[in-house]
Design a protein around this nucleic acid. Structure first.
Lengths: 267, 267
DNA sequence: CTTGACCCTCACGTCGCGTGAGGCCGGAGA
DNA sequence: TCTCCGGCCTCACGCGACGTGAGGGTCAAG
C-alpha cells in the first residue's frame, strides 16, 4: 500500500490541517525554497515526509516569533548564524513596536477626547486659562450644537495637540482682539474704513486657530454674534453695542470683496 | 509677482519641508486622489494652495493615527462617517495589536531563555521533576558543549514550549526505558534479537522528544554513552555494564539496517 | 460514469510608498 | 548667451507573505 496516507508522505491539505498553516503558505514556502517536499506523486502532488514535517514545524515555530522568511531560512540553514542573537534582535524590535503602538494609542485617546469633549483641559485648567467668566460647560454645549459639522472636526483635530500653554496664547489673541474692537468702536472707526477692514482680517486670522474661516462664513458668524444671546452678551460685555458694530464692519468688508452679506451662506 | 513662493501656491518640495512628509507621498496622495493640488504651473509643477495645505494637514493628522488612506479619505470626504467611532475602532485595533505583540514578546523571551538555559524550569522544579540524582548544572554544561549544533537548536525549540508537566512525561519515558533496558540485559536478551531491536527503536522514539535522531546518530550516541564518564556512570548506575550492552544492541541494529557502526558519523 | 473534494500551476492584488531611470524647468553665475 | 545645478515631472518596478480567483487535472466513492 504505497499510497496510504502517512506511509511515504502527507499532502498539502493534511500538512495544513496538522500544522495550522494555509495550503497557500506551503506552496509559497515551496516556491521560495524555504521548505520543499522531498517527494511528488506522478500527478505532481506534493508529498511531505516526516523529515519535511520536522523542517516545516521549525519554520512555524520561528514564524511565530515574527521573524521574516529570510531570517528563518538563515536560522535553519546557516549553522554560523547566532540564533539567540537573532531572537534578541527580534525581541528588541517587538519592544520598539509596542512602544510605538502605545504612543499611537495615547495619541488616539487624545483625539477621541478632543472630539468628544472639545477641549482636553480640566475644568480648573479651563478657568485658569480662560478666566473666571469662562463656563466649563461651553465645550460640551458647543459639541451638541456643532458636533456634526466639518468645522467641529477641524477644531477637534487642532484641539488634540493643544495644551494649556497653546490655549493661553489663543485666549490672549482673542481678548486682545476684543479690546482692539472695543477701542476702535469707541474711536468712531467707520465700517468700510481701512482700519475697520484690518480688524475684520485680524478677526479671521485669530479665529483660524479654531478652524479655517472663509469670508462668507465670517459674515454668518457676525450675524450669529448679534442674534445669539450668549455671544451678544459676551460682546456687549466688552462694549455696549459691540456685537452689532462688529456685524456692520464684517458686512462692509464682505461687500468690498464682492460678497452680498444678506445672501451669504455658511457653506 | 505671480510666481513668488506663497502667493498662489507651494511646490511639492516646500510642502514636504513644511509638513514633514516625503515628496513621493505627496505624489502618491495626488495619484490616488486623496489630496491633489488645485493648481499646476504651465510646466506641470504641482502648486498647493492654502486650502490644499489645510487638507494635507488633516491627512497628516489622521495618518498619524494609523488610519489607512481609504479611511482618511472617508473621514475627510464623507460627512456622514462617524469620526469618533472610526477613531475608537482604530484604538481597539491598536490595543489588540499591542496585546498580540506582548504575547509575541513573551514567546520570544521563552525561546531566548530556552536557547540560553536549555530548560525553563527553576532548579527546584528540575529536582522535583527529574529526581534527586539530577544536577541542575547539567543544562548549562550541555549548552557549553553542544550549544552550537543544529540539535541544540531543535532541542531549545522544543524546550520553549515545555513546562513541568511535559518534562515529567519525558522523564517518565526515559526512566521507563532505562528499566526496560536493564531488565532485558538481565534476561540475557542478545544483540540483534528482535527484542533488542525493538528496544533500540524505542530508544530512538523516546530520544526524539529531545531532537530528531537518525540511526547513524544513534550509533554515535551509543559510543558516547560508553565513552563519556558521566553517561557511563548513569547507565552503569542502572545496571553494571549497561552502557556497553546498549552500544552492542545499537550496533547490531544498525548493521541490520545496512549501516557500518564503525564508520558511522553524527552527520 | 459521474460527482465532489482535493490537488496543480499561473498570475494578479494587497498597502503605502521607496527608489531609481530618464528627462524637463528655472534661477544664478561666467 | 551658455551652462550648471537643484528641483520638478512621469513612468514603473519592488517590497513581504501570502490571498484569491481562474482554469484545469486527480482520486476515491457511489
Amino acid at each position: 500500500m504505497p499510497d496510504t496516507p502517512g506511509s511515504d508522505g502527507l499532502t498539502v491539505g493534511q500538512v495544513s490541517a496538522r500544522l495550522g498553516v494555509t495550503v497557500r503558505a506551503l506552496h509559497h514556502w515551496d516556491e521560495i525554497g524555504l521548505a520543499r517536499p522531498s517527494l511528488r506523486t506522478a500527478a505532481g502532488y506534493r508529498l511531505y515526509t516526516a523529515g519535511d514535517l520536522e523542517r516545516l514545524h521549525r519554520v512555524v515555530v520561528y514564524r511565530e516569533t515574527g521573524l521574516g522568511l529570510d531570517g528563518i531560512r538563515a536560522v535553519l540553514d546557516d549553522p554560523t548564524v547566532d540564533v539567540p542573537g537573532a531572537l534578541r534582535a527580534q525581541r528588541a524590535q517587538v519592544a520598539e513596536r509596542i512602544d510605538r503602538l502605545q504612543r499611537l494609542g495615547a495619541g488616539l485617546d487624545r483625539m477621541i477626547d478632543a472630539h468628544e469633549r472639545g477641549l482636553l483641559l480640566t475644568a480648573e485648567q479651563q478657568v485658569a486659562v480662560f478666566g473666571p467668566r469662562w463656563n466649563p460647560d461651553w465645550p460640551a454645549r458647543a459639541r451638541r450644537r456643532y458636533g456634526d459639522t466639518t468645522q467641529w472636526l477641524q477644531y477637534a483635530e487642532r484641539s488634540a495637540s493643544r495644551g494649556p500653554g497653546e490655549w493661553r496664547a489663543v485666549a490672549d489673541a482673542v481678548t486682545g482682539l476684543d479690546r482692539a474692537l472695543g477701542d476702535a468702536m469707541d474711536a468712531g472707526v467707520a465700517p468700510g474704513s481701512p482700519e475697520a477692514n484690518r480688524l475684520v482680517e485680524r478677526h479671521r486670522e485669530v479665529f483660524a486657530s479654531y478652524f479655517p474661516l472663509t469670508r462668507r462664513m465670517q459674515v454668518c458668524l457676525g450675524r450669529m454674534y448679534e442674534a445669539d444671546p450668549e455671544f451678544a452678551a459676551h460682546y456687549d460685555g466688552v462694549r455696549t453695542g459691540l456685537a452689532t458694530w462688529f456685524r456692520r464692519i464684517v458686512d462692509a468688508s464682505a461687500r468690498a470683496h464682492g460678497i452680498d452679506p444678506d445672501t451669504a451662506t455658511w457653506q
